[in-house]
Write a protein that binds this DNA or RNA. Structure first.
Lengths: 192, 192
DNA sequence: AAAATAACCGACCGTTGGTCGGTATGTCTA
DNA sequence: TAGACATACCGACCAACGGTCGGTTATTTT
């Protein structure tokens, strides 16, 4: 198993790249399988041999994008000297990355609707959310039994800022606001 | 203009109610105009006379749901004795309301993807977001030039909690976490 | 009474996502 | 190495979809 497997993998990658671009440009609904077929030069049968359907193709695209984003954030955070700095660097890197329309449209806007919120959450847990949760735990700022929910809230907040920045370009204000928010969160916990 | 206008309005309302149910149950993509037609007993031409297309129908549904939700939250908040209490009551009411699948699926999951994030944001600004922003400003906890972005982050965080609660049923934990978050936000601002 | 308007109808259309029987070719096994 | 097998790929076909359009009916306006 070599030539055949390689050929198959290459085809999948090619379709994936094209589908990623189209989904980002025109959204899930606005992208037709027909167009993917045309741009990839593949036949209908071939595509459905590799991907079970349009949803499955989208899911594969999402997975690839998330993996790439996770890799980049991990790179950025690698040499942070404290959990707090790691959290801050990771969050700012994520906002910067979400400046890419591919990330915005596919990961943040369409994914929950197309795959369903639960499936989306499951994917996120293996990537961005997982990293954020780990970073937040390391700072010790949040009670353990509040950790999961807190990480969710924080990620959702950050995602929103990323979408806002993409629209208005207020990058510097976003950095100040995020710093402000993290400052409040990492201050002495009230814990009631 | 009386009988005809009433009749038209009644038809629109009927379609709206049916579409709301279907969109909430099966999502935007999973709901076909055909089904709406069948369940409402209306003809194709009649529906397209009242609503320009599937998107427009969804938008009308969204607008109606948001209006209703806004009304209920306003009722809850009405007799709060302080801005802080108003914020807290409003947020908790919103989480409770988002326990309804109609609100979750239509407002939180499908709307950004179907209408586009920008359009969705515009609708939200007139409803939930607008209220939250006002409540947050009244507390004076956030610098004026950070207010808009902060309100966005807070709303996104709350929405996420609402979706989590719908899935896991951890209502009491959610309340504690939200209280914790609000406590940190309303504490003496760091302001850098 | 005539003109205008709006509600409503249903046949029709192009496009869509998906299926299926088939072929070609590389890989494994007796 | 010959045959069984698996995989990549093909394209005709299908039902369902969202949307259009010319037309009829009923009410309101002039």
């Amino acid at each position: 198993m070599n030539r055949k497997a390689e050929r198959g993998a290459a085809t999948r990658d090619r379709v994936l790249a094209i589908a990623t671009r189209l989904f980002a440009e025109h959204g899930y609904e606005g992208t037709s399988i027909e167009t993917v077929l045309h741009e990839s030069g593949l036949s209908r049968g071939a595509l459905y041999h590799h991907y079970a359907g349009k949803d499955a193709l989208f899911e594969a695209v999402l997975e690839a994008v998330e993996t790439e984003v996770g890799r980049r954030i991990a790179d950025t955070v690698r040499d942070a000297v404290s959990p707090e700095q790691a959290l801050r660097l990771g969050v700012l890197a994520w906002i910067r990355l979400a400046g890419d329309e591919v990330v915005r449209r596919i990961v943040l806007v369409d994914a929950p609707s197309v795959l369903g919120w639960e499936k989306w959450r499951e994917v996120e847990a293996r990537h961005a959310f997982g990293m954020l949760r780990g970073a937040l735990r390391a700072t010790g700022a949040v009670r353990d039994d509040h950790l999961g929910m807190y990480a969710h809230m924080l990620l959702a907040a950050i995602n929103e800022v990323a979408l806002l920045v993409a629209r208005t370009g207020e990058t510097d204000r976003a950095e100040r606001v995020v710093d402000d928010l993290l400052g409040r969160l990492l201050a002495a916990p009230p814990s009631r």
